[in-house]
Write a protein that binds this DNA or RNA. Structure first.
Length: 591
RNA sequence: GCGCCCGUAGCUCAACUGGAUAGAGCAUCAGACUACGAAUCUGGCGGUUAGGAGUUCGAAUCUCUUCGGGCGCGCCA
């Protein structure tokens, strides 16, 4: 159990005791309170707001409640001091050994340190990327891919049962366009001069090998055929080929999925019809005419009756069309079916990662999920704002093969997957992000990736040097866990451990808020606290980690270093970044 | 016109979801290497949290409103 949880329980027990003894009477249920590190380290080890949240239910001023709880908390074996401060905070001081035990626990747990059961095994489906299978991934997909991938890892670490999913939009009109584009490349492969790629088709030369492949397999049998004859085959082959490109891009970015769900398979299996029939049965579908959209009116707008979903009954601003004028389902309709399918596969909680340009779509799909699951399923959507790609402050253009856009591969080739991943998380996802490829490779303080990697490499460097004084056994994790940590006495060192002990709280709160960027910020903080400690040794040689004349002290400090390294690894693991053993030119990733 | 997101130090951003004196980096000023990597660190300067009103023990955070920026607004996905 973490220190925070332990003390949280102790505070809860103190309140219960006060209620039992009659000192406190609550008019409502016990409110939620927190135990957290105080803003000022001088205020103690931990602080709780319990007296303030109890003020109303107990009908007493916060400080009076704190006075009642103070002696009860002071009696706890781990508490060495209780102070009441400010409007009614209760500040606690703990035995230093508590923190030293935590350092030992970190080394023992390894990168599993920080694992939490807060998610209680709830099954959650995280859907991300879901780029259309019409070409390689472009830079615009980067952020959502990383945010989704890291959020999934974070939820898993926080105790959720996570499924990572990709939705293949292989049923829409854009796949017909893709097939026609490939057909052109097919004729080209047969020796025909196709000239310029017409407007409206995909011009990228990544389609050239697909056309060649079909020409190689099928010969000229399609060249004079009607579109209706060749279209199905070209669609299928083209989608497969594009998904192969996309999967390779995902591998390059170290992004993983458990399930690739095909929209076409959903349509073919009748699940769209079934889901819509379900809504029909609930009386939520009707034929009607929508008001024209406010603001600028589309030129070809005309009022006409449509098949509509009563989204307004579930909080949307207007009812939404389910069928196109040609009678086929809209994308919205198959999306309803898709999310209903997720729900029936056992995911009461669904998280979708979308680009901000889809923001207007959130309400209607949440309305649909509420309707089709009878309120049992919950959809949450995290929107990712745009990334402005720069190099030395100038907009970055590369587009070596794709025609008009910068591919994800261009970016990964330029700076590496680890850097891309980390930088994508240096802002909360609903804020715009400038990504300067030149700065991302700088080895300076203002490059957060480097800064964190440097801290990890420094830990490794110290442990390498320690091999001159200690046996491999003594430097193993088991050996370091046995170090006499009571040698660690300085406030600076304890502060570093207190920061490490925050890791599991960060995991829980970042997972609850679905904000993976908090992990990146925490790692920067952890790196800063460690770099600070390291430099204390410059001013005062007695604070250096390796003191050859005092092996027990050195061993204890090495254990502290190992704990720092462990938490950095654990955090980098969540981010999907490789921790670096060294950052020299011959740098290699940790095994 | 409507909806969503956003507005915090000169710049780029945090603030553990309502907590204490709003914190970091960059820039700027003043300092620290006979070392385990100074690619780092220590300190100073810098704020009416866009403006106004409200909710309560307490607001950057919640509500309303004004201003400013971004995205979206039938039969694209």
């Amino acid at each position: 159990m973490t220190i925070y949880r332990k003390i949280h329980q102790a505070v809860g027990a103190a309140v219960d005791e006060a209620i039992t003894s009659g000192a406190l009477t609550l008019s409502t249920d016990m409110p939620v309170f927190v135990v957290e590190p105080p803003r000022e380290a001088a205020h103690g080890d931990l602080a709780t707001n319990v007296a303030m949240v109890l003020a109303k239910p107990a009908g007493k001023p916060p400080r009076a409640i704190a006075d009642i709880l103070k002696p009860l908390l002071a009696a706890h074996a781990d508490v060495t001091g209780v102070e009441i401060a400010g409007p009614g905070f209760i500040n606690l001081r703990l035995r230093p050994e508590i923190w030293l035990d935590e350092a030992r626990e970190i080394i023992r747990a390894g990168t599993h340190y920080g694992d939490s059961d807060a998610g209680r095994g709830v099954r959650v489906n995280v859907e991300y990327v879901s780029a259309n299978p019409t070409g390689p991934m472009h830079v615009g997909h980067c952020r959502g891919a990383v945010v989704g991938d890291v959020l999934a890892s974070l939820l898993k670490k926080a105790g959720y049962d996570v499924c990572r999913e990709y939705y293949i939009n292989d049923a829409g009109a854009q796949v017909d366009v893709l097939a026609r584009s490939v057909f052109l490349r097919y004729r080209e492969a047969l020796g025909e001069n196709i000239g310029e790629i017409p407007q409206g088709l995909y011009p990228g030369d990544y389609l050239v090998p697909v056309g060649k492949m079909i020409a190689g397999q099928d010969g000229a049998k399609w060249s004079a055929a009607a579109e209706a004859e060749w279209l199905p085959r070209f669609r299928a082959i083209a989608v497969d080929a594009m998904m192969a490109l996309i999967r390779a891009d995902l591998v390059a970015l170290n992004v993983h999925h458990d399930v690739f769900m095909s929209e076409k398979s959903l349509v073919d299996s009748g699940k769209v019809d079934a889901a819509l029939a379900l809504l029909q049965g609930k009386g939520l579908i009707y034929e009607g005419v929508l008001e024209p959209p406010k603001g600028k009116l589309p030129d070809d707008w005309e009022a006409r009756p449509q098949t509509l979903f009563r989204a307004t009954e579930f909080g949307d601003d207007t009812d939404r069309p389910l069928k196109k004028s040609d009678g086929s389902w809209t994308y919205f309709a198959s999306d309803i079916a898709y999310h209903f399918d997720k729900f029936t596969r056992g995911f009461p909680l669904m998280v979708d990662i979308w680009g901000a340009d889809h923001g207007g779509y959130v309400k209607r799909l949440q309305a649909a999920v509420a309707a089709v699951t009878g309120g049992q399923g919950r959809l949450e959507v995290r929107l990712c704002q745009m990334v402005n790609l720069l190099k030395d402050g100038q907009p970055f253009k590369m587009s070596k093969r794709a025609g008009t856009f910068v591919t994800l591969r261009d970016v990964v080739d330029e700076v590496g997957a680890d850097v891309v991943r980390f930088i994508m998380l240096t802002r909360k996802s609903d804020a715009q992000l400038d990504f300067d490829l030149a700065k991302a490779l700088e080895q300076t303080r203002d490059n957060p990736v480097f800064y964190v990697q440097y801290a990890h490499a420094r830990c490794c460097s110290i442990l390498r040097h320690a091999a001159e004084l200690f046996t491999p056994d003594e430097l193993s994790e088991a050996g370091l866990a046995k170090a006499d940590l009571s040698k660690i006495a300085s406030e600076d060192e304890l502060l570093v451990i207190k920061n490490l002990a925050n890791w599991s709280r960060i995991v829980e709160s970042a997972a609850a808020a679905q904000e993976p960027h908090r992990v990146a910020f925490y790692l920067m903080e952890t790196a800063a606290s460690f770099h600070g400690l390291w430099n204390k040794g410059n001013d005062n040689a007695a604070l250096r980690f390796i003191i050859p004349a005092d092996k027990p002290l050195t061993h204890a400090r090495l254990a502290l270093i190992a704990a720092v390294r462990t938490v950095l690894r654990s955090g980098l693991g969540v981010l999907g970044c490789q921790p670096m053993e060294e950052l020299r030119s011959d740098a290699t990733a940790a095994a």
